[in-house]
Design a protein around this nucleic acid. Structure first.
Length: 492
RNA sequence: GUCCCCGUCGUCUAGCCCGGCCUAGGACACCGCCCUUUCACGGCGAUAACACGGGUUCAAAUCCCGUCGGGGACGCCA
């Protein structure tokens, strides 16, 4: 490629522009991820821009919470901006549009036309009388201190069609007659979202706007603003929405904490698994691949792979997380090295108050990694490795469902205790050998032989493989627990 | 209400643009079998979808029209 367009076809610049009015939710996270993937795939620039023009609703806690969510995802950005620090630019842009005659002052008091029949009778387009105000009268009233909002003078009755080409939805067109005279400046002089967003996108030389489909119809207004700014609009790419099982757009208010990314973090999702899951919602590499590390997602991501229909994120009271996300997490968990997984599991054990030393946890990790799908499940799956005292369990559990009765169970325990006290070496192979021989001696199959021991040692029926478990636990603890089990048997 | 978008297994999706290779592929979930000292992991298999109605065509999931259904946007919120 050495044509003359090489300079204009420079590296793409994309942005993620959250407004700090709540925690980072999964829909926003996906938008961020797609932007990031696009930037990295095309060796472009990722811009983080805080769209904090709504002073009323913005909170610092929200900013922190969004950053916390993004930090967890582990995806970076190259440039950072805050809209609240760029208000002067937005205002002067508004004035420039006004000076070009593309906007007018609207002295109608705020919220004047709210409620009533206005919304029932079709779309509102503009407040009567304001469009036609002469420049002189407009100036006079403004000078007199009468508050006004600045509105875009959308072309009327000119047969004008506003259009743009969306990278996902294709050719979009709408008669300007159907677009309302949206506000650029509020009566307090502050810019609206539409204005700030477009002015910044133009000023920051954003080349692709990748955002939720809920902005699809707003885009016509944005095209008009770019026009008023004398700027070339970026390419738009709208993403299908993430919806709840009830079909409605995911919202913090309606669906609660299940839409917050920190909820996934706290439940023990791996960020790479969460990202993988989100990517599969509304995008596909089209080759049946589903398990993908971030490097591969980056390599495969293109806007052509984005589809157009909304995707359901499944969650319910019983299972708060989409089963596919959980499954994917299990796969990513198992793809980690034991050292890595062990380190990531540590906080979950600490939080559970299990006092797990890194060394011990490192030994336990291989025994549970195929048995958990969320890291939060780990403490419950491995608590008996770290507890001095086994939690109480039903002695009846000691008795196998088939192959041995209570009397035989007691014999198994007693015999095992003798054998285990005498095994020369406390490792997998000698335990295996000794206990299988013991089973033969008692005339039992492996199952009925191992079950009582497993329950005695772990305090439950379902546990990791017996010999590995006993090896990690050590002889002393095993013998002690078997001893206690015998005592329990006596209770029956 | 007005405008816009969408509609393939329960869910995420491939296929649709460039009609035949689709007796519609993959994944999750569910069920069954195998592996196995339990639970898992893994392997194998089963059930399961082109919203509906018209057209165009030798041929339609794929093209056209309509209907219905779902979602979104219509704010001096973002």
């Amino acid at each position: 490629m050495h044509d003359k367009s090489s300079s204009s076809a420079s590296a793409p610049r994309v942005r993620f522009a959250p407004s700090p009015t709540g925690f980072l939710h999964v829909g926003s996270a996906r938008t961020f991820i797609f932007n990031w993937l696009y930037a990295r795939h095309n060796r472009g620039t990722m811009v983080f821009r805080l769209d904090d023009t709504d002073v009323e609703r913005n909170t610092d806690a929200s900013v922190q919470s969004i950053l916390e969510g993004l930090r967890w995802l582990g995806l970076d950005w190259d440039e950072e901006f805050k809209q609240s620090e760029r208000l002067a630019l937005h205002r002067s842009a508004a004035h420039a549009i006004f000076d070009r005659g593309l906007a007018y002052r609207d002295f109608t008091p705020a919220h004047a036309a709210e409620g009533e029949a206005s919304s029932a009778q079709g779309a509102w387009l503009f407040n009567p009388g304001m469009r036609e105000l002469s420049r002189d009268e407009s100036d006079r009233r403004a000078a007199a201190g009468e508050p006004f909002a600045l509105r875009y003078r959308v072309p009327r009755n000119e047969g004008r069609i506003v259009q743009f080409n969306d990278a996902v939805y294709g050719e979009m067109a709408k008669p300007s007659d159907e677009i309302e005279d949206f506000a650029l400046l509020r009566s307090d002089g502050n810019p609206t979202y539409h204005l700030s967003s477009c002015v910044d996108d133009a000023d920051l030389r954003i080349t692709q706007i990748i955002r939720g489909q809920d902005h699809l119809t707003n885009t016509f207004k944005h095209v008009l603003i770019f026009e008023g700014l004398n700027a070339q609009p970026p390419q738009f790419a709208h993403l299908p929405l993430l919806v709840a099982p009830d079909g409605a757009k995911l919202s913090k208010r309606k669906h609660g904490s299940v839409v917050s990314v920190t909820t996934y973090r706290d439940a023990g999702f791996l960020p790479e698994a969460f990202i993988n899951f989100l990517c599969l919602l509304g995008w596909s590499p089209k080759n049946d691949l589903e398990f993908m590390p971030i490097s591969q997602l980056t390599e495969l991501f293109t806007l052509e792979g984005v589809n157009r229909s909304n995707a359901v994120v499944n969650f319910s009271e019983e299972s708060p997380f989409d089963p596919k996300a959980v499954h994917l997490n299990g796969e990513h968990l198992r793809a980690l090295s034991v050292d890595d997984l062990s380190a990531r599991l540590q906080p979950f054990f600490d939080q559970a108050g299990l006092n797990a030393s890194p060394e011990k946890l490192r030994e336990v990790t291989p025994l549970i990694r195929e048995r958990i799908r969320l890291m939060s499940e780990a403490p419950a799956a491995a608590d008996f490795f770290f507890l001095d005292q086994l939690p109480p369990y039903d002695p009846a559990e000691l008795i196998p469902a088939k192959g041995a009765d209570a009397a035989m169970t007691l014999r198994v325990l007693q015999h095992a205790q003798q054998i285990l006290a005498a095994v020369p070496e406390w490792n997998h192979d000698s335990l295996d050998k000794a206990l299988r021989e013991a089973a033969a001696t008692l005339g039992l199959k492996a199952g009925p032989m191992f079950q009582p021991i497993r329950v005695a040692v772990c305090g439950r029926k379902n546990a990791p493989p017996l010999f590995e478990t006993m090896t990690v636990l050590g002889r002393e603890i095993c013998l002690d627990r078997i001893q206690k089990a015998e005592a329990k048997m006596a209770e029956i």
